[in-house]
Amino acid sequence: MLDDRARMEAAKKEKVEQILAEFQLQEEDLKKVMRRMQKEMDRGLRLETHEEASVKMLPTYVRSTPEGSEVGDFLSLDLGGTNFRVMLVKVGEGEEGQWSVKTKHQMYSIPEDAMTGTAEMLFDYISECISDFLDKHQMKHKKLPLGFTFSFPVRHEDIDKGILLNWTKGFKASGAEGNNVVGLLRDAIKRRGDFEMDVVAMVNDTVATMISCYYEDHQCEVGMIVGTGCNACYMEEMQNVELVEGDEGRMCVNTEWGAFGDSGELDEFLLEYDRLVDESSANPGQQLYEKLIGGKYMGELVRLVLLRLVDENLLFHGEASEQLRTRGAFETRFVSQVESDTGDRKQIYNILSTLGLRPSTTDCDIVRRACESVSTRAAHMCSAGLAGVINRMRESRSEDVMRITVGVDGSVYKLHPSFKERFHASVRRLTPSCEITFIESEEGSGRGAALVSAVACKKACMLGQ
């Protein structure tokens, strides 16, 4: 009897593995994704193909990295998701002549009506938060230079001027797309009239992360975010950046690689679950690469896999709870928690219980395998993109072996128990001629924006502006 049951459990697990095998990517698959990513990057950089390229390769006008001589107080704003952060950054000489960066910050959550109302409502709310922060720190009387981390696709015309191309991540505030974001912020500050600010720089969160990590390690020339969304930036040779005049030196390019796949480059790798996630998203047909990796989508992918296993009578005796059938019910943090389970399955059992399920031991094991399959594919897909960037940098610099540091931020990278190990191992397999160091950014977005502002202020002083 026991043997029969054991055989049935083994057969069930084997069927589960057959279904989950769809998520496995072979090294040849990853090399294919990497080569296609490089081709799209090239198209994004070139003037004649930029418009139709899915990977936009947006110039950021960040050319210099901090040298350690900029000092002063800077205000930093960070808008990239449902939370908005205001930070005071003091850049100065530390002990023994070292450079020191001290920060104080406060988080504000953005109400739904500000995210989806008008641009005026959104930026009025942001300036209200700045006003509140300055009151708390008794700094209303000071006109501070301000660095703005704005983590949406922007076409820069200068370091302090950028046109919002399109909202992502659930934002829909009308009247912002096609307009200068810094102008919208300046107008809102003017409307309030109770404080003055000098907006000197606007950067993407990947750029802010790279600059913040450069402060720790001067070989950091790539910034990457794996959180709600997924994106990367890197220092490109100016001669390859056709959208900006000049051939000397390097400029940081914001790849906006989340949109890779929007022209069909990933079609052969998309599964039924991916198509369902895409169809029910706020932007169907867009940001397809990001939807395979980002935390906004990972939990939902797992939920759809679990429903398939229920329908195949391989999980929960073929019956799903009402909660499990509800879109968004299986949160991405559950994926991390399930994979963090120590082996007694308590954590998995508790999560499934909150979803109205009474799982068996085998159910718990199957749910864990589903989570591992989805998150491992995410790590491997992400590795193909980064390997594409790094191999490109090595080739354009004609280096036999390139040493490089990548600064990384984002909740999936930082909080998932195995993502970074799987990701690092896969990147290294795909970049055999590179020695890569990964560092995690601390308060990256805010500190990085302030350091970019410090560079901009120093330049302005040198130019006598």
Results as ranks from 00 to 15, higher is better:
S353E: 10
S321F: 07
L271H: 11
E28T: 14
F269I: 07
L324F: 10
A53P: 04
D3M: 09
L165K: 01
L184S: 02
N283I: 13
V389R: 03
M87L: 03
Q286P: 07
K142F: 05
K459T: 14
E221V: 14
L355F: 11
T65Q: 15
I439A: 11
M115F: 06
A378L: 03
H105Q: 10
E14A: 10
A6H: 06
T332A: 06
G318C: 07
G464V: 07
T354N: 11
L306D: 01
E28W: 05
D187E: 05
N166G: 07
L288N: 11
D363V: 01
Q337R: 14
F171C: 00
K291G: 05
R392M: 08
C252W: 02
L164T: 03
M298D: 00
G285I: 00
C461H: 04
R303T: 04
L307Q: 14
T49K: 12
D160C: 01
P432H: 10
E120L: 06
S131F: 06
L165T: 01
E40D: 13
F23N: 01
F269V: 08
S426D: 08
V406F: 01
M210G: 01
G343S: 10
I348Y: 06
Q337M: 04
L270A: 15
A6Y: 06
T168L: 01
L243D: 12
M202I: 04
K56V: 03
F269W: 15
G285H: 10
R308M: 11
F438L: 07
Y234S: 04
L386W: 12
M37W: 01
L386F: 06
A378H: 04
E372M: 11
G249W: 08
E52Y: 10
V427M: 01
S69C: 09
E22N: 15
D363W: 02
Q219I: 14
H50R: 04
V16K: 11
A119Q: 14
D205L: 03
S375P: 02
L184G: 04
M381V: 07
N166D: 03
E196W: 08
G464R: 12
Y108P: 05
D158S: 11
G328N: 15
I19W: 09
R327K: 14
A384G: 08
S396Q: 13
K12V: 10
G295M: 02
L88Q: 12
H380L: 12
A21D: 09
R327M: 14
E67D: 07
L77M: 01
E237I: 09
R5A: 09
G388K: 00
R447L: 15
W167H: 05
E216A: 14
E236K: 04
D311H: 04
T118G: 04
D363K: 09
M393A: 06
F316R: 07
A320E: 15
T354W: 11
S280K: 14
G318A: 15
V16Q: 06
E322L: 14
L20I: 13
E93G: 11
G446Y: 03
F334R: 13
G246R: 04
F260L: 10
D363S: 08
L30I: 07
P66C: 12
L30V: 07
P111A: 10
T354C: 14
A379T: 07
V89Y: 01
R192S: 04
R333N: 15
S373T: 11
D4H: 07
A201R: 00
A232H: 00
E242D: 08
K169R: 04
L355I: 12
K12I: 11
V427S: 15
K31P: 06
V277Y: 04
T361C: 11
S398Q: 07
E319D: 15
L184C: 11
C457D: 15
A329C: 15
E319H: 15
L355T: 12
E268L: 08
Q286G: 05
M87Y: 15
K459W: 14
V401E: 13
A208L: 00
D29T: 10
D78G: 01
G356T: 08
W99A: 15
M8F: 08
G295I: 02
A449C: 05
F269K: 11
M197L: 14
L357Y: 08
L165Y: 03
C233P: 03
T326V: 14
I366G: 07
T206V: 00
G175W: 00
C230I: 05
N240S: 15
K140A: 04
G388H: 07
R358L: 13
L306T: 14
A282F: 12
G183H: 07
S336Q: 06
D132G: 04
L271K: 15
F133Y: 05
E96F: 10
R403E: 13
M37R: 00
R7M: 14
Q219C: 12
A384L: 04
P153N: 01
D262E: 08
V181G: 00
T118D: 05
D187S: 15
H416G: 01
E51N: 06
V55A: 03
I110N: 05
F195W: 02
D194H: 03
D278N: 13
I163A: 03
G80L: 05
T354Q: 08
E399L: 10
E399T: 12
H50Y: 05
V408D: 00
N313L: 14
H424Q: 08
S433D: 14
S151M: 01
G264E: 09
A329I: 11
M115W: 02
P284H: 14
T118I: 03
V101G: 10
S373H: 11
Q24L: 08
F195Q: 06
V207P: 00
L45G: 01
V338N: 05
F260D: 04
L185Y: 06
M224T: 14
L314T: 11
V62L: 15
E442N: 15
E440D: 13
D3A: 11
K169N: 07
G229Y: 00
G444L: 05
E177A: 00
E196R: 15
A456G: 15
H50Q: 14
I436F: 07
V222G: 00
E236Y: 00
D42E: 09
A379H: 02
F133P: 03
E331I: 15
A320N: 15
Q24M: 12
F334D: 07
L58R: 05
E157H: 13
L324W: 10
A387W: 01
Y289Q: 08
M8P: 10
L164R: 03
H105K: 02
M121A: 12
K102D: 15
Q219P: 14
T405L: 08
E395P: 09
V241E: 10
R325T: 12
L352A: 08
Q38F: 06
I366Y: 07
L75G: 08
L146H: 03
G343I: 08
F150Y: 05
E265D: 10
R155G: 02
A320I: 15
H50D: 05
E421T: 10
G183F: 01
I390C: 13
H317N: 05
M298N: 04
R397Q: 00
K140S: 07
L304Y: 15
F133R: 03
A454W: 12
M298L: 15
G464K: 09
V389W: 13
L134N: 01
L58I: 05
P417W: 08
Y289N: 06
G162A: 14
